[in-house]
C-alpha cells in the first residue's frame, strides 16, 4: 500500500461513517456531503434486501427489519462483488446473530432461507443435461434429472403455510426448489422423506428406479414391494410432468 497512514485512516473513518452513521470525524469533509453518502449507501443496501425478502419484511415490524439491516451493514463485512448475491450474506448474518430467537420468530431462519432459495435457483449458473429422450421404461431405464435445483431441509414449513402459521406445524420438511427448462420459472415442491431418498439416489447415482426400489426394500421391509413400486411410479410420473425429471437417458447402462 502506498497510502500514507493518514490517508488510510481517512478512508477508514469514511467507511465507518457510511456503515454505522456514527460520527467518525472524517478530515476535510462537509457535513452535507457525508450525510448524502450515508443516505445513498443505506438506500442501496436496503433496496437490495427488501426486494429479496418481501415476505420476511411483511412478517417483521419496520423497527425489527431496520434494526436487522442496520446491524448487518455495521457488523458484517460483505464478501461478494455481486450485489445480487448479498441477500445470502444477510441470511447468514441473521442466522448467526440469532434474530429468530431475539424476535421470538423461530421460523425466521427458514423463511429467509426459503426466500433466498428462489433467487439462488433463479440465477444459478446453467447446468446442462446429458442427451435424453422423452419416452422410456420408467422402471428400467436411467432417468435424466434436471440439475438446476436445490433440495433443503426445513424445520418450519414456510413453503406450505403463512409464516406465523408454520409455527404450529414444526417438523421435518424437505423442499425442492427447481428451475424449469426453457421458460426458467422457479418452482417449489414439498417432498416426503421416502421420495427424498429416492430422489437423492436417482440424481447422484447411476441407478434405475427398480434398482433403487430394491435398495429401499432392504432398508425398510414394512412396505410391500408392489405398493412401493406403485408409489414410486406415481412419483416419477409427477416429476416428469413437473420437469424435475427431463426424460430417459440416451446413455445406456453398460
Amino acid at each position: 500500500m502506498l497510502y500514507s497512514a493518514k490517508t488510510y485512516d481517512s478512508q477508514q473513518r469514511l467507511s465507518r461513517w457510511v456503515r454505522t452513521g456514527e460520527n467518525a470525524d472524517v478530515p476535510g469533509t462537509t457535513a452535507e456531503g457525508l450525510k448524502q453518502y450515508r443516505r445513498l449507501f443505506r438506500n442501496n443496501i436496503n433496496n437490495t434486501l427488501t426486494q429479496a425478502y418481501p415476505i420476511s419484511l411483511e412478517v417483521l415490524s419496520n423497527e425489527q427489519w431496520n434494526k436487522m439491516v442496520d446491524g448487518f451493514y455495521a457488523n458484517h463485512d460483505a464478501q461478494t462483488p455481486h450485489v445480487w448475491k448479498l441477500p445470502f450474506e444477510f441470511y447468514q448474518f441473521a442466522r448467526e446473530s440469532d434474530y429468530a430467537q431475539k424476535y421470538g420468530f423461530p421460523f425466521l431462519n427458514d423463511l429467509l432461507y426459503f426466500e433466498w432459495l428462489e433467487i439462488d435457483v433463479y440465477t444459478m449458473p446453467n447446468k446442462y443435461p446429458e442427451p435424453f429422450k422423452e419416452n422410456g421404461d420408467a422402471m428400467n431405464d436411467l432417468i435424466e434429472v434436471n440439475r438446476e435445483y436445490s433440495l433443503e431441509r426445513l424445520e418450519y414449513p414456510v413453503h406450505l403455510y403463512a409464516a406465523k402459521e408454520s409455527l404450529n406445524h414444526k417438523g421435518n420438511y424437505f423442499l425442492l426448489t427447481y428451475r424449469t427448462p426453457k421458460d426458467f420459472e422457479v418452482k417449489f415442491l414439498d417432498m416426503p422423506p421416502l421420495h427424498v431418498l429416492f430422489f437423492e439416489k436417482i440424481s447422484n447415482e447411476r441407478l434405475t428406479a427398480s434398482q433403487i426400489i430394491d435398495q429401499l426394500l432392504v432398508q425398510n421391509n414394512e412396505i410391500p414391494k408392489e405398493q412401493l413400486a406403485q408409489n414410486i411410479l406415481g412419483f416419477i410420473q409427477t416429476m416428469m410432468e413437473e420437469k424435475v425429471f427431463l426424460g430417459f437417458s440416451e446413455n445406456y447402462l453398460n
Partner: peptide
C-alpha cells in the same frame, strides 16, 4: 471496498 468489506457504493478517494 475497504478492509475486506464491499460497500457497493463509490466513495471518494482523498
Amino acid at each position: 471496498k475497504l478492509d475486506n468489506a464491499h460497500l457497493y457504493d463509490l466513495l471518494p478517494i482523498p
